[in-house]
């Protein structure tokens, strides 16, 4: 288990940088992770992040892009514009949830 510090908050992360305890996540931590990934978070990013956190809590597993587009009401194209280096992993990184197991 590795620990990383974002915005003064210490969080536990796995080898790929995903938070292992979603409860340690705060919006400030998200900003810190986003900065590390070179992302400037907009309102639309937050809408996606909030949906992913809520859905993960409800389902017990983090959603893949297809589920996110339907649930958060953004197009696949938008999702790739928001997270150009790969929404499959990066949304979960910023939202502080595990790497999705979904292939879609």
């Amino acid at each position: 288990m590795t620990t990383k510090t974002y915005a003064g908050t210490s969080v536990d992360v796995d080898a790929e940088g995903f938070l292992t305890n979603a409860d340690q996540w705060t919006p400030e931590v998200a900003l810190g992770i986003a900065k590390e990934l070179g992302l400037q978070l907009t309102d639309l990013h937050w809408k996606v992040i909030e949906y992913v956190r809520a859905d993960t809590k409800a389902q017990g597993q983090s959603p893949g892009p297809r589920r996110i587009t339907v649930g958060a009401g953004v197009s696949m194209k938008d999702l790739y514009t928001l997270f150009p280096k790969g929404p499959g992993k990066l949304v979960a990184r910023v939202a502080g949830v595990p790497k999705p197991k979904s292939c879609l």
């Binding site: 893949g64 790739y80 150009p84 280096k85 790969g86 929404p87 499959g88 992993k89 292939c103 879609l104």
Partner: peptide, 9 residues
């Protein structure tokens, strides 16, 4: 191909 795009490839 979709998995590649999801991972930023």
């Amino acid at each position: 191909a979709n998995a590649a795009r999801m991972a930023g490839v």
